[in-house]
């Protein structure tokens, strides 16, 4: 359904263009889940925003193809793209405190998508909004529908955002760190809700997060991004159990385990390279324990480590035998 081919995104800065995402490819069949993992600045959100072409056109340059049902979203005129937004592809954002318009009631905002795409009247949209609030398990939906966002908690607002996103039963939902701004208990509820809705509606979900554990639990397939590049692409279980790229390993090790009593939490040494000043070789080499001289010399390619498992690490390619 969605097929991203060699997507690169550049942003204009004072000194020229800076590459934020380079040569990312992945595919997402209908009714499936994909997780995108990486730390801040790895390009995961930029990739997601590119799918809906939300970047400011004047300061962004995108190349490659994003095929959705056989049409290239990047080449599509804005008008046609607008018809897809909200109807076929929806998105929820990281910070529910800022993603609702403070001067409109939540019913108005949920109804807006329906009015745009299905031409519903105000009353019909209001009734649908109540149903949708029920769907996202907001109690007392009938009276809640006329409330303004400032009266809802963060978790509630994220539910409202989800209600807005699923209003037209989209086939693809992009969730950009949907739980990052929420309490841990609320996080679990929101993810559970997404999981249920996904089955109810039969949509595909792209879940973006810096939390590898969370993504691996939610998705069927996971891609790990680092400094704008795809470094590992594999089924979720594989990434979680036997990650091959040293960066994925590091991400996994950085999740504290409740069973072990550790005095020091693990952190990957160093920082993500500045997008304007990336190393000549492997982007991760300066932080990598396995790095060899060759790693610093030339950028490594993405190679098939095992069927359906791709990594961008020549060291691992030659030293490790894939577990059958």
């Amino acid at each position: 359904m969605l097929d991203v081919q060699n997507l690169s995104v550049d942003f204009r800065v004072d000194s020229g263009w800076i590459r934020s995402v380079s040569d990312v490819s992945f595919a997402l069949p209908a009714n499936s889940t994909l997780g995108i993992v990486g730390e801040s600045g790895s390009g995961k959100s930029v990739t997601a925003l590119s799918i809906l072409r939300l970047h400011a056109a004047r300061t962004t340059r995108m190349s490659g193809k994003i095929m959705f049902d056989g049409n290239d979203l990047l080449a599509m005129p804005e008008r046609r793209l607008r018809d897809l937004r909200g109807r076929d592809i929806a998105m929820i954002f990281q910070d529910p405190m800022h993603s609702l318009n403070p001067v409109l009631t939540i019913g108005d905002q949920i109804g807006e998508t329906l009015r745009i795409h299905q031409g519903l009247s105000a009353t019909e949209a209001r009734n649908r909004a109540v149903e949708l609030l029920d769907m996202v398990r907001i109690p007392d939906a009938k009276s809640r529908v006329t409330e303004f966002p400032h009266r809802l908690s963060g978790g509630m607002r994220q539910r409202v955002m989800i209600a807005m996103a699923i209003a037209c039963r989209p086939r693809l939902l992009i969730a950009d760190e949907p739980t990052t701004a929420l309490d841990v208990t609320v996080q679990a509820q929101i993810l559970e809700l997404l999981r249920e809705l996904r089955q109810e509606i039969g949509m595909s979900v792209i879940l973006i997060s810096h939390d590898l554990g969370l993504v691996a639990e939610f998705s069927e397939r996971v891609i790990v991004m680092y400094a704008g590049e795809l470094v590992e692409d594999a089924p979720a279980r594989t990434v979680f159990d036997t990650p091959q790229h040293p960066y994925s390993e590091g991400l996994l090790r950085a999740i504290p385990s409740p069973d072990e009593d550790v005095s020091r939490l693990y952190a990957i040494p160093g920082r993500i390279p500045d997008p304007g000043n990336r190393p000549p070789g492997c982007n991760f080499a300066p932080r990598c324990a396995l790095a060899e001289p060759a790693c610093h010399a030339a950028p490594p390619p993405l190679e098939a480590f095992a069927p359906g498992h791709f990594i961008r690490c020549p060291v691992r390619m030659k030293t490790t035998e894939p577990a059958e």
């Binding site: 607008r82 993603s99 318009n101 807006e112 998508t113 807005m164």
Partner: peptide, 19 residues
């Protein structure tokens, strides 16, 4: 974000500006 959210819902320029 809520302007982006409106854009994601498929809202056009007029709706985004006036609403």
């Amino acid at each position: 974000d809520y302007v982006d959210a409106a854009r994601v819902s498929g809202a056009g320029a007029t709706r985004i500006i006036f609403r």
